[in-house]
Computed example of a mutant assay.
Amino acid sequence: MTVLHQIDPIALDLGPLQVHWYGIMYLLGFGLAWWLGRRRVRAGRLPGVNEQAYGDLLFYSMLGVVLGGRFGYVLFYSFGEFLRDPLMLLRIWEGGMSFHGGLLGVMAAALWWARKYRLHFFDVMDFVAPLVPPGLGFGRLGNYIGGELWGKFTDGGWGVIFPRAPEFAGWSQTQLQAQFASGALERFARHPSQLYQAALEGLAMFVILWWYSRKPRPRYAVSGLFALLYGSFRFLVEFVRMPDPQLGYLAFGWLTMGQVLSLPLIALGLFWLGLSRRAPTLMPAPITASKG
């Protein structure tokens, strides 16, 4: 069934203050990470760390997501625009965040926090990895609500008409609704790739990683599985997702920047899983001494 996208990206309009659904999705992701992380702390999954110390980790990770995500977007996707207009780096409200940049930001925050509390970096990353997918899923739902990052045309019968797509430039909402009702827009139906990513990067990754990490696993294993899953899912979905217009396809008429950035994650995931076969296993323990 083809759907006409008509969701208002503004959840609450208070005149000078507008609350966007995308921002709410970020809050939901961080809120769920806080709740799930506290459960893992109470279960002793990061021995010697209390809830206050975990709160610090979450705060630094939030900064890493926002700053790393923005810097990564500028570096990977809009570096030419940045050279022409350096201030665009600060205009976060205009959109433009990169998962790969956000991941590097979180890793930097986790490294600093791990050294502060004298923990092994990958013990921290293994602890954090299962908490990330819900935020990814909510973020992709935010992309869908905002009608951005849509997919390629599809005749599969489940496509979505996105009014922000270039083929509808200059069209009014009344025109769109009338043409949609007549069936004239069926050929413009696109893959809702944002929902595919929400299902794979959000729901599927969370279920797999949460189940896998319920038992003690060797160091590197959970981080490796996270990297392998995300890299693989992202690489596959890029085949039905439109490339970033400022970059287009990088090679072969199909290779996108998202796929290029996902290949190192797949390689690292396999490498870390290989390392885990000879690594020690961190056993859960009740909190007996606070490090926060």
Rank of each mutant, 00 (worst) to 15 (best):
M1R: 11
M1A: 12
Q6A: 13
Q6K: 12
I7S: 05
I7L: 15
I10W: 09
L12E: 06
Q18W: 12
V19Q: 07
V19I: 15
W21S: 03
I24K: 05
M25V: 08
L27A: 15
L28R: 01
L28Q: 00
G31D: 04
R38T: 00
R38E: 01
V49E: 07
A53R: 06
Y54A: 01
D56N: 12
F59D: 00
S61Y: 00
M62V: 12
L63D: 00
G64N: 06
L67W: 10
L67Y: 08
L67Q: 03
Y73L: 04
Y73F: 15
S78K: 15
F79D: 06
G80P: 00
G80D: 14
F82H: 09
F82W: 13
P86D: 06
L90H: 07
E94Y: 03
E94N: 11
G96R: 13
M97I: 14
L104W: 10
L104R: 01
G105R: 09
A109E: 02
W113K: 08
K116R: 15
R118C: 04
L119R: 14
H120V: 08
D123I: 01
D123K: 08
M125I: 14
A129Y: 00
A129V: 01
P134N: 04
G135D: 01
G135P: 02
F138G: 00
G142Q: 06
G142I: 06
G147Q: 12
E148Q: 13
E148N: 07
W150A: 06
K152Y: 04
K152M: 09
G159F: 10
G159L: 12
R164E: 12
A165V: 05
P166N: 10
E167W: 13
E167P: 00
L176M: 15
L176A: 09
Q179W: 14
A181S: 15
G183P: 02
G183Q: 04
R187W: 10
H191C: 10
P192A: 13
Q194R: 11
Y196W: 14
A198N: 04
A199Q: 04
L200Q: 05
E201V: 03
W211T: 08
W211F: 07
Y212M: 09
K215G: 01
P216R: 10
L225I: 13
F226T: 03
A227S: 14
L228T: 02
L229I: 13
Y230T: 02
F233I: 07
F235M: 06
L236H: 07
R241D: 09
G248N: 07
A251K: 09
A251M: 12
L255V: 13
L255A: 09
T256P: 03
M257I: 05
Q259T: 01
V260L: 15
L261S: 06
L261G: 08
L263S: 05
L268G: 01
G269E: 06
L273Y: 09
A279W: 04
P280I: 05
L282F: 03
P286C: 09
I287D: 00
S290M: 07
